[in-house]
Design a protein around this nucleic acid. Structure first.
Lengths: 221, 221
DNA sequence: ACCTTTATTGGTCGCACACCCAATAGCTGT
DNA sequence: ACAGCTATTGGGTGTGCGACCAATAAAGGT
């Protein structure tokens, strides 16, 4: 028993660049969601993927670009889940209802964390700042379009109504890392999600309760 | 000329612990405001202060505590600037007007950045999370008190009105790092500060324009 | 079958960080 | 004037990071 099996050379798996690249971005997005964008590091992604760090550096010579792409990937997925393409047949009020109710449902807490993360980190990383601005614009445009299309009675036009709502959503997201144990940030009878829905109904000139009702009618909530 | 002047021993200045400690926290708060909380590091603070890193470690054996105190210090100063003690004689509506108008005036952009920074970083640092919750509570309590005292006609009580407003403010703060160059995050005719003031007036049952007017009447704006 | 291309490895370098510890020197009370 | 306390220094350890590079091996074209 003097000879050990020869150190098990890791079989080298070579993939088409496009595929490998996607794999890397997906993994990075997963890390970003679960642990935060600052942990999207060449080493970390490589570990998760079972390859060597140098390989990640080969695809992303500047690590900041990977961070930005990871965020963009996750954010795009999120939007697809909140405003699915296959719901385009629904009335605007229904789509908005689903959007808001899903968003405040509590399952998107990790997404809120990610956005908060990105908004802060974009202070230091220009590529990420760019990606955040892009994702913002896409969502704002989509929401503004829905409001226009729905013919709501807004106080100052669809765009401003959309921004009002998005600001409220980001405000709620600011509390995503607040732990109830650390001094009870909010009295428990104040539910942030409720406030967002109130804001939406206020901005769109809807009767209180309309959005939840529309969402429930479409099987959410 | 073989002998150089003996390497100029840095004169060792010994200060009373309390004073030194305050000095350290002040310096840390300054760094946090100017460069971000992640740059509040033992080395960095020591450099700024002209001492050796070990000294900072002597006062703050856990670096996270310094970060938390730096934030708390800056946040407390901010509140003192937005809701000064010596304005307690003013009517609640005036104090709230000054609070909101000062906040949206654009000079507090670095404070918004700091809050965003802290809200995100508190995900990883428990002492900071605690400090954020504390500062939040103090501000919310003060604002709720003002709303109560002012006898406004709120839709759902002073606390909820206060939270509505604070969420909107945090939402605006989310955009503190958005650079106009990176894809024009917002159409320029949408002024976030305006939206906050609108929200405040809406939540407090005030005529549009009231808050700016009250602020101007008190010499701000 | 060989040859070119390049995806992938393995390792190095320099940097910044928190944390720890022994030696030193300024201050205070006696 | 002296002694004790401790604020302050100087240096060392270990970690994780991005960037860089030469060597290697898998795939594809001819």
């Amino acid at each position: 028993m003097t000879s050990r099996p020869p150190a098990e050379r890791p079989k080298r798996i070579r993939k088409p660049p496009q595929e490998r690249r996607l794999e890397i971005v997906r993994t990075a997005a997963h890390i970003a969601l679960a642990f935060g964008l600052e942990l999207v590091t060449l080493r970390r992604v490589a570990d998760e993927l079972g390859v060597r760090p140098g390989l990640i550096g080969h695809y992303f010579p500047a690590a900041d670009d990977l961070v930005a792409e990871a965020f963009a990937y996750a954010a795009a997925q999120e939007r697809a889940a909140l405003l699915p393409e296959d719901e385009k047949t629904l009335a605007p009020v229904d789509r908005i209802a689903l959007f808001v109710v899903r968003l405040t449902g509590g399952e998107h807490i990790d997404l809120s964390r990610l956005w908060l993360n990105a908004r802060h980190l974009s202070r230091f990383k220009q590529p990420l700042r760019r990606a955040v601005a892009e994702q913002e614009t896409v969502t704002r445009t989509a929401l503004t379009g829905l409001i226009e299309e729905g013919g709501f009675t807004t106080a100052a036009g669809p765009l401003r109504a959309a921004v009002h709502l998005l600001v409220a959503i980001d405000g709620m997201g600011s509390y995503a890392n607040t732990d109830a144990e650390d001094g009870a940030a909010l009295p428990e009878d104040v539910e942030l999600g409720e406030l967002i829905i109130e804001t939406a109904e206020l901005q769109l000139g809807l009767e209180p309760g309309t959005l939840r009702e529309r969402a429930r009618a479409n099987g959410v909530g």
